[in-house]
Design a protein around this nucleic acid. Structure first.
Lengths: 105, 105
DNA sequence: CTATTATATCGTTATATTCCGATATGTCAA
DNA sequence: TTGACATATCGGAATATAACGATATAATAG
């Protein structure tokens, strides 16, 4: 059964942008300073919160709660490595959303 | 380009229900009293506002504005016949939404 | 252990959405 | 034209969301 929360998560321009940015992390994010961060990005498509904060131009707390919300409804996956939390797209969840929309909507 | 308003429209349980109810109007709506209404329903899958008001259990003004909002972002189509406005699903718009989600999200 | 850095959570204010009742408009029948 | 009915629009009160700064937690470096 489809969940309205996924649509709430998608009904905000910044959160939609985050999903799009995470499609091609290397192209979108340029403020990478650390090797670990760069590795996570190119290897798993994961981006740390900081970089998304810079890209979005919103407060860190705002972006952090956006990401939590998007993880909750299976649009994103998070993975902590040391100090950093890397967020990447939940492709399975996105796939499932597509199917649910096709079947239920 | 995908529009956040479509997700805003979908991020409300009643509005999601309306979309689902309009999939099988004959099965869902039982309070039909008038022949014209019955004809529109079985012929074009259109349902008048009244019936959706009864089904949703919300004020007429609320449902009316929900329907307007959903028409605006191409989830529904409206057609006026006499006193009644019939709303039906905008299958082309829904199809397009599915494609946009697949391509852009 | 302490300082620093990254992220998460909390409390708050501004803004948006929800949903209502009252009222306006549009349509038909008498 | 008047009345009755269907729908749309308006104005408002309650609630939810947006987005911030301050603070808490987690992890590492020294």
């Amino acid at each position: 059964m489809i969940n309205v929360n996924v649509f709430k998560a998608l009904s905000n321009p910044t959160r939609l942008d985050i999903l799009k940015w995470l499609k091609n992390p290397e192209e979108e994010i340029t403020s990478v300073s650390c090797e670990t961060v760069r590795y996570m990005m190119t290897e798993k498509g994961g981006i740390c919160v900081q970089d998304l904060v810079k890209k979005a131009g919103l407060a860190q707390s705002t972006v952090s709660s956006y990401l939590a919300m998007m993880e909750q409804c299976e649009l994103l996956i998070s993975e902590r490595h040391g100090k950093w939390t890397y967020y990447r797209r939940n492709e399975a969840g996105l796939q499932q959303l597509g199917e649910q929309i096709r079947e239920e909507l």
